[in-house]
């Protein structure tokens, strides 16, 4: 018992010292280094500004809402379990056989097929499944391609132009094998808006 008390007391002293080192010096040290140019922007969230307004983060997808659903000019992100609220994050955590969620997904599929004017069978998987973070910045090239005709129509752009923008905002696999091909929705929407007649 005496040993335990003595060791516990030593433990408290060690913990205090280590807290200073690992809990204050280390993170603030990392923070300081991250003030270096090239790191600071990343450290503060890879924010994207348009005309001085912060419109989001390069790394985050927040689904834009169309003012008029019949005239939807946006590429849409994947479904989000947190309603695209970037102050939090999370997933549906629904099981692969959850009967209620099957209905939800069925609904999504129908909605998207109707929105894009295609057969529900053509809707790609990422379009109807909620992401893990609820903030997935990306969609699959297939989902982008599916949305391109509508976006082109709504923005009064030629399809080829929109497809070229999709292409430009598509990131392939690193070195050809790391990760999955993906399209950054925020950057694509910004590019579409910049290219569109409604710009400026």
């Amino acid at each position: 018992m005496k040993t335990l008390l003595a060791q516990t007391a030593a433990g408290l002293r060690v913990l205090v010292v280590l807290t200073v080192l690992l809990g204050v010096v280390y993170p603030l040290g990392v923070w300081l280094v991250d003030r270096l140019p090239g790191l600071q922007a990343n450290a503060e969230g890879s924010l994207v500004s348009v005309n001085g307004t912060t419109v989001g983060s390069d790394l985050m997808g927040i689904d834009p809402k169309a003012a008029n659903p019949g005239h939807d000019p946006w590429f849409h992100t994947r479904p989000s379990a947190v309603n695209g609220d970037p102050s939090t994050s999370g997933a549906s955590n629904k099981a692969a056989d959850n009967p209620d969620y099957i209905k939800v997904m069925q609904q999504r599929k129908t909605t998207i097929a109707a929105r894009e004017g295609v057969d529900p069978a053509q809707v790609p998987p990422d379009a109807v499944t909620a992401s893990a973070s609820g903030l997935d910045a990306d969609i699959s090239p297939a989902y982008a391609a599916l949305q391109a005709p509508r976006v082109a129509r709504a923005n009064g752009l030629p399809l080829a132009r929109v497809l070229a923008l999709v292409e430009a905002n598509t990131t392939g696999r690193g070195l050809g094998f790391v990760g999955e091909p993906r399209v950054d929705v925020l950057m694509l929407n910004l590019a579409v808006r910049a290219a569109g007649p409604g710009a400026h």
């Binding site: 109807v128 990306d138 990760g179």
Partner: peptide
Amino acid sequence: GPLAKLAGAAMEGKEVRFGIPG
């Protein structure tokens, strides 16, 4: 699972940039 079969792939709760392998 019926959910993944309906969606076409088991992407529920996964991020596009990682995909199934990642």
